[in-house]
Design a protein around this nucleic acid. Structure first.
Length: 907
DNA sequence: AAGAGAACGTA
DNA sequence: CGTACGTTCTCTTC
């Protein structure tokens, strides 16, 4: 982009800082007294502290524009393969050092510093590779490492920063400095090291030859090659010694040569210094109890008023202690104004409990109550306010609060803003939305280190003391203030409607679904467990018999030994830890070798998986005989829900044995039947709508079988002559397109030549050109705007679309293809859920929603309501498209099934 | 004890 | 070299 700069703009040369993480962390560990550095939990932190301190100094003093840290992965590398004794004298790392490296990596992650590692190679090889690439791109490079081998990298563009004392004093090793220190230039340094040896690497040198002699020889004979070639002529005792150790010297040189042409996921251009994830960094530094270092770090930032040292102060909180019975009056004085609500308790569905609440108004006043101590009058006032749908409330993670309060018999209604949901709509790719993190990120305000209610509201903090009451009040005040900032952020994104009309109303629906749960036939499920367990035992025994010994069949490592060493099978696809033993690979191996071990192994895998699923479900059955999952509303970046504790969105269905598990999900005793309703081909319908492709839209309007219709157009035959093989190819391709499938990927899936796959895709696009135009267009638009959008305007931000790194860019492109489709489907079913729930309530029916599985709803139907509920569900799911601005161009077909179990209700 | 990686279930 | 998830197990932690 530099050629796009206007003439005369001063350009500074990019400067890349590369750090050998292990080397510097290890130095730091020995430089600082471990007994002086430990958090209150006993976690030693001296290496973390020293490393971070060093990094902070480097960032401040060297002002790099790009930065990366490389780590060794394991002791074994290609060097130890070549020479097992390499680094063999190194002691095991001290106990207190272990565990500090992951913390350092975590810290680097929050600072958005790229971290690299590569199996079989050392960090220095990564640094060498990046240094070479950066130099070729005209960058200046600083390499910070305690490994002298890196001195070979030094040149006019590359300087090594070598620690001389602790980690705070670094020697600048320029070409001149290397020459001055060792008597040879950097390019000859590894020659010298090969002769002298390197104790720390367990590479013996030529006895009697030190750096002085080595430098003299190297200069005299023109490098190590010259020395070796002329070994016969080297005079004296030292010469004799050299001749006796030629092999070792050659080996030393081979081993100390750094690899500078590794394949790395990131190139220098990807390493630009990024703004820190301040909330996460604060959290981490809190955990580590690094107070002064935090100040040092944040003091380095440009003074934009947003860091810890210059945080904006909250208006002082006026925590009011009302007289007993005073709450009703306090609330009445604030009727119809939004109050923030903080609930302390546990938010597990059907097992929640609340023990403290705090309310904050917009003027800096707050009240807090311990629910164990509250007077009856105040509790009644609180209960009435909580349940009043017309009393507006602002909450963080309102579904967890809903469950916690429900556990106390306190219904919650009238939530008009949820800061967690709002933050999710603004930043859907975030992993977590802790209140404390959001307060720092959006308000530049630190809440107590004891953190806010997580999604599950698992904080057990009682309000017995004034400190706790004050903290609760401060959280409520933060929620209140956050809601205003986030409301503005939402408006900027055009997402206010998504919150008000979709996500927020859905909270109540989901909360009731979770609290209701789904009934389980426990006896049947226990029987299944025994069946699957027997299958596990049987398969294991047969597998052991075949190979003549017992191994852990669940250990990929041990399986690799058996398959590739003991049984000598052909290697499978390479993975980080060797060769894959996944089901696809094993099936392929079985097809080739017919080895019975593979058959038993695969059977064992299946059985153990089924047993595991069943056991997990059994553990989750509540006292009421029902399973209460939690639907996560802020996890999936596309807008889907996810399900945890347990996950009920991945209950098996594809195999017969798996389907047995669905028989365990049954209708509850007071209800008549389960009903499932799912959208057919929802994603393809969205593709048709979004692309506006006339052929595809016509396909859906025709009411014919989609894949046969498309197949007839692609293959140029009448619909009724589309063979099952043709149809399944079309089906695979159609769905693949929504994921960014390549012709290679398609060929793999269909087991056909790449040429055939790409011809198939070409024919498809020939007939359905609108789809092709849409797919290319959606990526282009996203690249230009920085985001994708669903039919209801839900955005996903994809900054990597403009990455220089091809792999990252292509990943982002596939996300851009898929996010509008998957996300629009999520929008539609959420609209449908609201419609279904609204109608069930309006008509005062006893039937209720239980589960959502992305394109499917599961309901429990009350006696006598089956027909009405089926019609209502069809109507509401079918009408979800009406909510789309401009209308939805394709009919939404719904198929419905009914039965006593989820299996029977399926179709 | 905690995290990473592998494997695998769903849409 | 196809997106989005959650769970469980093993192995490792220079």
């Amino acid at each position: 982009m530099s050629d796009a700069l206007p003439a005369g703009t001063p350009t500074t040369r990019p400067r890349l800082l590369l750090v050998d993480g292990h080397s510097m962390a290890y130095r730091a560990f020995f430089a600082l007294p471990v007994e002086k550095f430990a958090s209150s939990t006993g976690q030693p932190t001296n290496a973390v502290f020293g490393f971070t301190s060093m990094l902070a100094n480097l960032l401040r003093d060297e002002a790099p524009t790009h930065v990366a840290v490389a780590f060794d992965l394991a002791r074994t590398t290609f060097r130890t393969e070549r020479y097992p004794e390499y680094k063999g004298t190194r002691d095991a790392s001290p106990e207190p050092f272990k565990g500090q490296v992951p913390i350092i990596r975590q810290l680097l992650e929050t600072m958005h510093v790229a971290v690299l590692d590569k199996p079989n190679f050392e960090a220095d090889d990564i640094l060498a590779t990046l240094a070479a690439q950066a130099r070729a791109q005209g960058m200046e490079v600083l390499v910070c490492t305690g490994d002298r081998d890196a001195l070979q990298l030094v040149n006019e563009d590359v300087t090594v920063l070598y620690p001389v004392k602790g980690v705070s004093e670094l020697a600048r090793m320029t070409p001149a400095a290397v020459e001055a220190r060792y008597g040879v230039g950097p390019e000859r340094y590894p020659d010298l090291a090969a002769l002298v040896g390197e104790t720390s690497d367990n590479l013996p040198g030529v006895p009697g030859v030190g750096p002085k002699t080595a430098a003299k020889w190297i200069t005299a004979y023109g490098g190590l090659e010259g020395v070796l070639a002329s070994a016969e002529q080297v005079p004296g005792k030292a010469g004799e010694s050299l001749r006796a150790h030629l092999d070792q010297v050659a080996l030393n040189r081979e081993l100390n040569r750094l690899v500078d042409d590794l394949d790395l996921p990131l190139g220098p251009a990807d390493l630009a210094v990024q703004p820190w994830d301040r909330p996460a960094l604060h959290t981490l530094l809190d955990e580590l109890e690094f107070r002064t270092l935090r100040d040092r770090l944040f003091a380095m930032l440009p003074d934009d008023g947003a860091d810890a040292s210059t945080q904006t102060q909250a208006a002082p909180l006026d925590l009011v202690e009302l007289a007993p019975g005073g709450l009703a009056g306090w609330l009445a004085a604030r009727a119809r104004t939004p109050l923030a609500l903080d609930v302390r308790g546990t938010g597990a569905p059907a097992a929640g409990d609340a023990w403290g609440v705090a309310l904050a108004d917009g003027d800096g006043q707050a009240v807090a109550y311990d629910l164990a101590d509250i007077t009856t009058a105040d509790e009644q006032a609180l209960a009435a306010w909580l349940a009043d749908a017309d009393a507006p409330k602002v909450v963080h993670a309102s579904k967890a609060a809903w469950h916690a309060l429900a556990g106390r018999g306190l219904p919650l209604a009238g939530v008009t803003f949820d800061t967690e949901l709002a933050a999710y709509l603004c930043q859907p790719d975030r992993r977590a939305y802790d209140l404390a993190d959001l307060a720092i990120g959006y308000l530049h305000r630190e809440l107590g280190a004891d953190d806010a209610s997580a999604a599950q509201g698992s904080l057990d903090l009682d309000l017995g003391g004034t400190d706790e009451a004050r903290r609760a009040g401060e959280r409520a005040a933060a929620v209140r203030d956050l809601s205003e900032v986030l409301a503005g952020e939402l408006a900027d994104r055009g997402a206010g409607g998504l919150l008000d009309e979709l996500e927020l109303p859905l909270v109540d629906v989901l909360a009731r679904m979770e609290r209701t749960g789904i009934a389980i036939d426990g006896d049947y499920l226990s029987g299944l467990e025994r069946t699957f367990d027997a299958a596990v035992q049987g398969a294991a025994a047969e597998a052991y018999a075949v190979i003549g010994r017992e191994v852990n069949l669940g250990s990929p490592k041990q399986l690799q030994e058996v398959l590739f060493d003991q049984l000598g099978m052909p290697r499978t696809k390479k993975i980080k830890t060797g060769y894959t033993t996944d089901a696809a690979a094993l099936t392929d191996l079985f097809a080739r070798t017919q080895h019975p071990f593979l058959e038993h192994l695969l059977a064992h895998r299946d059985a153990i998986r089924l047993r595991q699923t069943v056991e997990g479900l059994l553990r989750s059955v509540g006292a009421d005989g029902r399973i209460h999952t939690t639907f996560q509303q802020t996890i999936a970046a596309t807008g889907r829900l996810s399900s945890t504790d347990p996950n009920l969105q991945n209950i098996p269905i594809r195999t017969e044995a798996g389907r047995q598990i669905r028989r365990a999900f049954v209708v509850g005793t007071r209800h008549e039947t389960l009903l499932t309703a799912d959208y057919s081909q929802i994603e393809m319908r969205i593709m048709a709508h979004l692309s506006g492709d006339e052929g595809l839209i016509a396909a859906f309007r025709s009411g014919e079988d989609l894949h046969s219709y498309v197949g007839s157009r692609v293959f140029g035959v009448p619909t009724d002559e589309v063979t099952p093989a043709m149809r399944s190819k079309i089906k695979a391709m159609s769905y693949g397109l929504a994921y960014g499938l390549s012709s290679y990927g398609l060929s793999q899936q269909l087991s056909v030549e790449v040429g055939e796959a790409s011809a198939l895709m070409a024919d498809y696009f020939e007939r359905f050109g609108g789809v092709r135009d849409y797919l290319t267009g959606v990526v282009d638009v996203a690249r230009a705007t920085g985001w994708t959008a669903t039919i209801l305007g839900r955005r996903r931000y994809l900054p990597d679309l403009t990455s220089d790194n091809r792999q990252r860019r292509e990943v982002a492109e596939r996300m851009a293809l898929n996010a509008p489709i998957q996300g629009s489907a999520a929008d539609l079913i959420k609209v449908a859920m609201l419609g279904v729930d609204r109608e069930l309530t309006r008509r005062a029916l006893g039937s209720r929603l239980l589960l959502q599985v992305h394109d499917e709803l599961v309901l429990e139907v009350a006696p006598g309501e089956r027909e009405e509920v089926e019609a209502l569900v069809r109507e509401q799911m079918g009408a979800a498209g009406d909510r789309v601005p401009g209308g939805f161009d394709v009919p939404l077909d719904v198929s419905v099934g009914v039965g006593g179990s989820w299996h029977e209700a399926g179709h």
